[in-house]
Simulated scan of single mutants.
Amino acid sequence: MRTDDKLDQMEERPTDRVRPPSMTRTRMWLFWGTLAVYLAIVAGVLATSWLVTFDWQVMFFRPYKQWPEIHAFLDYFVVLGQRGPTAVAVAAWLGWRCWRQRNLHPLLVLGASLLLLNITVGAAKLGMGRLGPHYATVVGANEMGLGGDIFPSGHTANAVVTWGVLAYLATTSLRRRTLSVIAALGALGVGMTTVYLGTHWVSDVLLGWAAGLLVLLAMPWLEPGITWFEDRLMGILLRLWLRLRPDSLRGPLPVGSLAPGVSRQRIAPDGEVLVREPISAGTGGRSAAHTPDGWPHHPSRPYTIRSERAPAAPAGSRRPPHADRMPRTIPLSPTSGRGRNASG
């Protein structure tokens, strides 16, 4: 692919980019409903309600001792909620999509969602300081404000957001629904696995699901900022490319693309003129351009069919005449033929 073709794809928005989900009324109701559930869980734990009692009952049940045969498998399955491995795997897939679509939108959406997740979940963990089941001090207490960092569950929230971003960036409604179901089941499995292993209370997992879902539902509000940042970043990349290879974007103009005397220019997303190429008015836009090595470069001619092309040679035989060969238009005499046979 030529450099100017790459620039055209970088300057213009690709047509295959799917419009991201907008903040519809249904999505708004889901957001505020999930926020109400989030606050209700926090209030229930702070008030040491029946939710805390259920946490202790599950902890004393010790699921990892009830079903020890699946312990080894779940030790690996819970990795689907760890921030590092899941972010690398999803970023690799979205990076391939960025290269294919010639834009940075998928990776920027992933980065913005993980940044929002780390800020909100991290602030809640440090603010409430709840201890986990393995470090509990008083039976029946909510273990809040003791310097812990497990409420809400980071594994669960990260599984919801990281795998949910794939559904958010799906190209069709069918794929979006399918990936949403897969992401929901994966996040459900990761959350229940942390309860099985005894690393989280049940209320930690419930709050982690709500925290991750809030981030996904709030993503349409971040789309204008993501688009603004993407445009500025693409402009920086274009200027860097021109600085490294200043002559890579110069070349001949297509025949008949512009009127005589009009110059063609390439404009960056921020409005800066990158390349301006004048066209000679006397030649009707077909003047020869010069390549960086100094040799003239002429634009290609328009394609014509065989019947419209001028003949390269006059009509007739292309075989050169021979001095010792008589033309076939002169008939041979009978005597010359008998003489030739006699001599042979």
Rank of each mutant, 00 (worst) to 15 (best):
L104F: 03
V109I: 11
G111H: 00
M144G: 15
T120Q: 14
M144L: 15
S153M: 06
L94H: 03
V138L: 03
L117C: 02
L131T: 06
N142Y: 00
S153P: 14
W96V: 10
I119V: 13
N118A: 12
L108T: 14
V138I: 07
V139P: 08
G132Y: 02
M128K: 02
L104V: 06
L94S: 09
D149C: 10
L80V: 03
R102G: 05
L115D: 10
P85T: 04
L114N: 13
R100K: 02
V109S: 12
T137G: 13
A136D: 02
L116G: 15
S113F: 05
M128E: 00
A141D: 09
G84M: 03
A124V: 07
P152T: 09
R130N: 03
L116W: 03
K125P: 06
P85G: 10
L108D: 02
W93I: 15
T137S: 13
L117N: 00
M144D: 04
G81K: 07
M144K: 02
T86D: 11
G140F: 06
L74S: 10
R83A: 05
F73E: 09
D75M: 10
A87M: 05
A92F: 08
L107P: 04
N142F: 00
C98V: 06
W96F: 12
S153L: 02
S153N: 08
G111W: 01
A141C: 11
V90S: 06
T120G: 14
V88G: 08
G132F: 09
G84V: 15
V78H: 05
P85D: 07
I119D: 11
G145D: 00
W99C: 15
G111I: 14
F77Y: 13
P106D: 01
G95L: 08
Y76C: 10
K125S: 09
A92M: 12
G127P: 11
L126R: 09
P152E: 04
H105V: 07
G127V: 02
G147V: 10
G154L: 02
W96M: 14
A91E: 07
A123Q: 04
R102H: 12
K125M: 11
A112D: 00
I119G: 11
K125L: 14
G84K: 01
G148D: 08
P106Y: 06
V139G: 05
I150C: 12
V88A: 15
L110T: 08
T120L: 12
R83S: 10
I150Q: 03
T86K: 04
W93Q: 08
E143I: 01
V121D: 02
S113Y: 01
L117K: 03
G147S: 13
I150Y: 04
G145Q: 04
I119K: 08
E143S: 10
V79N: 12
M128L: 07
V78A: 15
W93L: 09
A91F: 03
V78I: 12
V90Q: 00
L126I: 06
L104D: 13
H105P: 00
D75V: 00
I119C: 10
C98H: 01
P133G: 05
H134I: 09
T120D: 05
G129L: 13
P133Y: 00
T137Q: 09
L126P: 01
G127Y: 03
A141Q: 07
Y135N: 15
S153W: 04
Q101H: 10
R130W: 04
A92N: 14
